[in-house]
Amino acid sequence: MMLLFEFRKSFRSWLNFTIGLLLTFTIFASFFDFFREDAALMDQLLQNFPEEFRAAFGFANVNLSEVEGYLSFIISYIVLVGAVYGMKLGVGLLSAEPREKTSDFLLSKPVRRWEIVAAKLEIALILLVAQALALFTLGLAEIKIIIKQPIDVGIFALLVFAMLLVQLFFLGIGSVVAAAASKIKSIMPVALGIVFFFFIIELVNESLHLKELTYLTPFAYFKGSSILTLRHYEWPLLAIDLTIFVVATGLSFWIYQRKDFHAV
């Protein structure tokens, strides 16, 4: 019951974001041919520059004239859009009842509190996995139709599921924030603020080569360029990402169990 209710409530925004993601991907994909010649030229030019300089002025350190290089570059923006959705889900689900003043209704049902949290997180996981799968299958089709070049499916899968892993990070953070706050009046300002903060840390990290910042922001955990060269995720960073997700969700169970809800 709870599952079905949450699912119906979240479906519209899931659809909007999934369409948004696909749209972004389509636009980027259809520009590939267009960029390729420029990219090849630029690449030659930039070979002479020191790494730090290229980073500071926002030039990618992958070869944009190849499909995989191009995809690994654009994926960071796909991940940004996806992260906003992950955060929105995380913040939105657990804060829904206090916001809509229906806590007493939900909590008077014959279910345990941890079951409520579990149901909400379960829905979130289903939605996120479905989103990643949709992006993977439809994205692959788009590459076939629009770019018309063979690509390494394994690399593409790694790139798309990097988005899911970043989303898990934000789902965890978001649900802790939602569980800990007594009431969140609107979701998006909180969600966008936090996601953009982490994204800017990544931009700073990229431009200024601040290695220490890599651990601070999930956008640095699964970089397209490193996926391309390693052909797998960087294990320590993957471990950090998943640990944060597990700890954060565990924490939100714990907080929700002890939370004092305001009755209307």
Binding site: G20, T24, I27, F28, F31, F34, F35, D38, A39, G58, L64, Y77, L80, V81, V84, M188, L192
Partner: peptide, 18 residues
Amino acid sequence: ATAVILGTFILKILIDLK
């Protein structure tokens, strides 16, 4: 508002590229 921010930001990236 979110759609406008993300959309215009991505457009900026596209123009930067080309």
